[in-house]
Write a protein that binds this DNA or RNA. Structure first.
Lengths: 100, 100
DNA sequence: ACCATAGGCAAGTGAACGCTTGCCTATCAA
DNA sequence: TTGATAGGCAAGCGTTCACTTGCCTATGGT
């Protein structure tokens, strides 16, 4: 899954999607589409965004839940920690207060 | 430069090069080549490795210094911090002891 | 001066990637 | 039931990417 994590981060549009989900998690595909268009002037097709979300989900950065005809996309930043753990050897969340 | 950082991390061979430089910084092109071949069974041409190093340097992840006919490649992990800072909102090195 | 070593430049190739277009399914409101 | 909304699948297209090959420059040992 590490491979897919780095691949997911490689695209600027996907990183912007992560930014949007950071600001408000649990958005639908159409919400993300319109935000990309409005706030970032990214006029990309709905399918394009959908494919990006699939890549992000494969990387574990986005988790989805279905409710009726809506599919909500939630952000999961946990996989990002392995990046700094790999080359910085540190826990990005900082020292554990219980075991300092 | 952020764009080049994520692009640099997208390739598995480049990530392995970072691993090798983490283990021992300041290696030459040929040293890196032979290590990739020996330790990781990656038989990639010298030019291929050279191009990877160029991408890593453009991302600021490796810095080079010339000495005679040798060019040493040093690891610089600093750019990695912006990744977790962007979506985790944390400093990977932990809280600053001066300003906690 | 010679030749091996360390590295660089540039063109070419095949595969992967981002994105679009067209059509199809499912859920909800009227 | 009809129509609108939310989303999915798959083929096609142009670009980027990783990698190779061939040739060239520069430094150092003998």
């Amino acid at each position: 899954m590490a491979d897919e994590l780095y691949k997911a981060l490689a695209d600027p549009t996907r990183r912007t999607i992560l930014d949007e989900l950071t600001e408000q998690s649990g958005q639908t595909l159409f919400e993300i589409c319109s935000r990309l268009a409005m706030k970032h002037r990214l006029d990309i097709s709905r399918q394009g965004v959908s494919q990006h979300l699939a890549v992000l989900e494969a990387a574990g950065l986005v988790e989805t839940r279905r409710e009726g005809r809506y599919k909500f996309h939630d952000l999961n930043t946990a996989p990002l920690r392995q990046i700094t753990e790999r080359w910085l050897g540190t826990d990005p969340s900082g020292p554990d207060k219980e075991n300092p």
